[in-house]
Structures are given as C-alpha cells and as structure tokens.
Simulated scan of single mutants.
Amino acid sequence: MINKIIGYLNRPYPYYYGRWHKILLILATVALLSFLFSYFFEPFEVNRTEHKLDYFWICLLHALLPVGIAFVYFLVLDKTQGDTIKWTLGKEALHLSILLVLIGIGSFLIRDVIYDKPDNWSVRYFREEIKNTFLVGMLLLAVLLPLNLERLFKKYQTGARQLNVNRLRRATNERVVTIETSVPSENFRLNISDFLFAKVYGNYVEIYWKEGNEVMKKLVRLSLKDLREQLTTFGSIFQSHRSFLIQTDNVKAVSGNAQGYLLSFEDCTLKVPVSRSKIAEFNTVFTSNK
C-alpha cells in the first residue's frame, strides 16, 4: 500500500510556475472569488464588535493576503527550481502544503490589525489559523490534484496513440552540415539523417546521433538557440521543450503523461519531453509530409 502511494506521488505532474501571466490571472481570480464569497455570504461567524476595520476591508485583506504570499513563494520556487521535467505530483502537493502553512501564519500575524482582542497573539489562535487554513486547503487539493493529473494523463495518452497510428513515415535525406561552436577548433560535422536530439547540459549542449546501432553523444560549447538557428532550414528539426531540440523524422514512438508527450528513439533509453505548450505545433510537424 505504501509503495503504491509513493509510486502515485512520483508520477510526473505539470510545472505551472514559470508562466507568470497565467499565475497572476489565477491568483487574481482566486482573490476576487474569495472576497465576494466572504463579503456576501459571511461563511464564518462574524462578531463585528471585535472588528477594528469595516467588514469590507477585512474581507479584502483576507482575500489579498494569500495572493501576496503565494506570489512571493512561487517567485522564489521558480528561481530555485532546477529540472522541471522531474516535477511530480508529490512535489506539487508538498509545496502547496508549505504555502498553506505560510498563509495560515500570515493570517495569524494580521489578527492584531483586524481584531480588538487581548489574546490575538496567543498560541491557541496561532494553531487555529494554521489548522483552519491547512485543512480547508488540503481538502481542495486532495480532490483537485488527482483529478487534474488523471485528466491530463488521459488527454496526452490519447493524443500520443493517435500520433503513432496516423503518422506518415518519412525518409530523411542525408545531408551533412558543419556545426559551429563558440570554439572554432571544436566545430564538427553532423549528418541530419543520423541526428536524434540535443539536450541542454548547463552552459553546454549534449548532441545525440546514431552510428549504426549505437547512439553517440557529444558535449559542445554551444547554446540550444544557436544550434536551432544553424539547423533552421530543416523542417524536421523542432524544439520540443526549452531544453531539447529534436529530429522528428527519427522519433520511434510517442507516449504521454500529465506533463505532455514523451518521445522514444531507436536504441536510446533516454526519453525526450514535449512540453504542453508545444503539443499542437509538434502534432503538425510530426504528422506532416516533407
């Protein structure tokens, strides 16, 4: 049972925190809904004699506080996060749980601004604010995260199956190009028909290609952007992810998970991701004729 839970938490999950326009839109929507719900429905017991502020401003403060805390937390998370491909359901749940605790602490710290009570700084209220915020938030997360995981998994698995069935197989003409690196003496020649994919590796790029039945790789001082620009004349070259550039003609099979697609190449154990924002474009390139 424990192994099944661990396995479930280790399933790939989308990393949302690099798209700030969407994050800000979501946070603003949550704040607005939270304010309207609290102000018009008064879901919690309200003793206005204890209030230092008008109830309108209290509702607004409670709606904006989580947004501010979440914005700072997501900003720090995005700046410190490494490989987002390894983001899982467990990591998502962990960070959102930490965020709920921080929001609970923030709600406790503003009690003295809102309520005229001598025991605002008591341990009882400290525990109460954290417990209430955490329990309500986790109840929602326990429902929404698995539902979103299964929705995306089914969506991309279905799309991957259709691609494998409908793909028009193509033969890539051999064409050798010289790849220019930041160090001229390290320039090298690459046969496009053998090229599989390139992967960002720190300040370098790791290039993978086939030689017979073997997969070769080479680490070069070059950015992925520079490599893409040097191969831009080839319609089968596609940037599937911010860290990967692929040769679509050499993709053997496509599978899917909640993060998007995973691409397999012949004789290669490493699978290459296609990010969700690239799916539609990849579908067109992958199924088109030369």
Rank of each mutant, 00 (worst) to 15 (best):
N3T: 07
K4I: 03
N10L: 08
Y16S: 14
R19D: 15
H21E: 09
A28I: 04
T29I: 06
V30Q: 06
V30C: 14
A31T: 03
S34E: 14
F35R: 06
F35Y: 09
F37E: 08
S38F: 13
F40E: 05
F41I: 14
F44E: 15
E45Q: 11
F56G: 06
I58K: 00
C59I: 03
L61Y: 00
L64A: 01
L65P: 07
V72M: 07
V76S: 02
L77P: 09
G82P: 07
D83M: 03
I85N: 13
I85E: 13
L89I: 09
L89T: 06
E92T: 01
L94K: 09
S97F: 13
I98C: 05
L99M: 07
L102P: 04
L102K: 04
S107Q: 12
I110H: 02
R111K: 00
D112W: 00
D116T: 02
N120G: 00
N132R: 12
N132L: 11
A142P: 11
A142D: 05
P146D: 09
N148S: 15
L152G: 10
G159K: 15
N164D: 07
V165K: 14
L168V: 15
I179C: 02
P184L: 01
N191W: 01
D194N: 13
L196K: 02
F197A: 09
A198S: 05
K218Q: 03
R221L: 10
R228A: 14
E229T: 15
L231Y: 08
T233G: 10
S236W: 07
I246F: 01
Q247N: 15
F265W: 01
E266S: 04
L270D: 09
K271W: 06
K271P: 05
K271N: 13
K271M: 12
V272C: 00
P273S: 01
S277D: 03
I279D: 03
T284R: 11
T287L: 11
